[in-house]
Design a protein around this nucleic acid. Structure first.
Lengths: 344, 344
DNA sequence: CTGAAAGCGCTTACAG
DNA sequence: CTGAAAGCGCTTACAG
């Protein structure tokens, strides 16, 4: 008796019944085990047999069911990717870098855009466990508890943190070396004689914000300076532009501004110009990330390049290695940024 | 005898053995069927029984295996999302809109960034069939053959096309009404007396490019005009900026430019300024998409707003409806753009 | 190299 | 409402 599936019962043009491994084996005149070995590219199968099976696959239009395979073998060939704000071009570049590596390796990623909210992150991680992802690339939302990530990892879902890291920082992690980035910017500004250097910081509490501030402070200390100001700002062009006035109205305004990221820096660039200030001559301005737009803004924005695509690629590589060898020693990979001086 | 799984054999800290539905049933003192009904929120189960099962779920740390459920029920609660270029802020906004709807509905999406290449698209679609996604949101790469998409849909993978559509255009589709967008821009320019109106077009052949050009031509025709020029350009700020010179060097340069998208328009804005032209007074400039950056560029870029987040949300809604009812009549949803006049 | 059997963790009829 | 049995499409030992 033929099972009537829901899609067949309901469909106007019923989807053709799927060819299974059993039917494929019958078509090729071999056993299911043999077909399974061919599918997994085992060298145990005779070349002639392999060829015959491959012909049958093409002839019957067979499609491998990776979910069924996962149920038995435990490997889904899928991972989760959790990022905080995909509309920031930096994250988009990062995602493209990850996607390229996974595509080459034959893997596939579930995407979650958390908007930096822990509740969405938690829901998504739960779904990754239900879908049996083999691992997760996670940019932890601000406020994520290290203990919670520990629980999840202990339950058998490997996590590689990207860009941000929570807790004692001994797990797998890939990100830019924010401290070096800040040191490069401070060095550049100090050489040019700036002593009143301010930071337009993030308004979120996470390691990426913290490490930037610490890096800035340490570098300034080496030059006998302290930050002229630290102003938190939402990561939005409009908010940053609006912030410009209040900064420049001070009695003793900074002569140089380093911004948490380029989105903020570009907003600030625009805001300063609307006030009649010329970034690059009246006030030095340095962004963070070096997104594409830095090249074409007017004036062109100087920025600390963090190479998001490379970070994404390195993180994806690390996660695949970790899945293959869960016992390997955790790695913290910090990619060195470089300073790209343009007109500001 | 206890099965040793690979991860246990290999792991230093072995992942705790997963609680299965059978064990959960034993813990709660009911049958597996009953637990299954509770998991699927069936009303058939007595409230008291349901409560007991839920307590056991919490107590044992049970995690539902959606893949195993899919094998029997056919529903994976996962879809594929194929876009051409995630680093374009427009696609990022679109993705955020899709993600929000899926999150609310309890679904999850596999992401593919094709870079507008059909080979990557094909590989990804094949993986979606292997992973048994319930459907796909697809922005077809330039050059995608309608027949191929037809085959895939016929094999039982519902496809909702977004932003672009191939072939006879009778399948499910959600996108902006490019023609209306162009009409709004042309109307605006003609009222202001422009007669030499040019298009900086995409360099890719797809319906989104074609519909823009057709819309422009039709609108100009209604005003007794023809396009002053149609210049193809790669979707990159730098390429667009570089193109500016050759356009303005003409003997009879256009007085107004409409650009395929904002990335190109912003590059053009920059390129024109570097040449000493003032966008907005020397030459009118209108972008397409209305990405965030339009508000903060100097001068602020006028643009045709296509509301990517809303398109994404509508497309995700449509796909979920199509999965629930594969026999429903196909829908083509065109969202009306509006023109946002700023300084250019 | 190949084949028969068991099992991965669920859902689905079906009988009670 | 509940329980026993079969089955979704694979992989895994194991015997040959």
């Amino acid at each position: 008796m033929i099972q009537i599936r829901p899609s067949q019962a309901a469909g106007r043009r019923p989807a053709p019944r799927r060819v299974t491994l059993r039917e494929l084996a019958a078509h090729a005149g071999v056993s299911r085990s043999t077909v399974s070995l061919v599918l997994r590219e085992s060298p145990l199968v005779a070349a002639l047999t392999r060829a015959r099976v491959r012909e049958s696959m093409a002839a019957t239009g067979y499609v491998y069911d990776r979910g069924a395979a996962r149920l038995r073998s435990g490997v889904s060939q899928a991972i989760g990717l959790v990022i905080s704000e995909i509309t920031n071009p930096f994250y988009a570049e990062l995602t493209a870098g990850i996607d390229a590596v996974l595509d080459r390796a034959g893997w596939v990623a579930f995407l979650a855009n958390t908007g930096d909210r822990t509740d969405r992150q938690e829901r998504f991680l739960q779904r990754m466990r239900e879908q049996k992802a083999d691992g997760v690339l996670l940019c932890p939302a601000s406020g994520t508890e290290a203990a919670r990530l520990g629980e999840i990892a202990a339950s058998g879902l490997p996590i590689v943190q990207i860009l941000r890291r929570t807790g004692p920082m001994q797990g797998d992690y890939v990100g830019p070396d924010y401290r070096i980035g800040m040191a490069l910017a401070v060095e550049h500004l100090c050489v040019r004689g700036h002593v009143r250097i301010g930071l337009i910081a993030s308004d979120r509490r996470n390691s990426a914000s913290r490490e930037r501030l610490e890096g800035l402070t340490e570098s300034l200390t080496r030059h006998g300076l302290t930050p002229a100001l630290v102003a938190p700002c939402e990561s939005s062009r409009a908010k940053a532009a609006a912030l410009a006035a209040s900064l420049m109205d001070r009695t003793d305004p900074p002569t140089a501004l380093i911004c948490h990221n380029d989105v903020i820096a570009l907003g600030m660039l625009s805001g300063l110009q609307r006030l009649g200030r010329r970034p690059g001559s009246d006030v030095a301005l340095i962004g963070f990330d070096n997104i594409n737009e830095c090249c074409t803004s007017i004036p062109a924005l100087s920025s600390i390049a963090t190479q998001p695509a490379e970070i994404g690629a390195a993180a994806a590589d690390l996660l695949l290695r970790r899945i293959a060898d869960p016992t390997g020693a955790p790695e913290q990979i910090l990619l060195p940024p470089r300073l790209v001086i343009r007109e500001t």
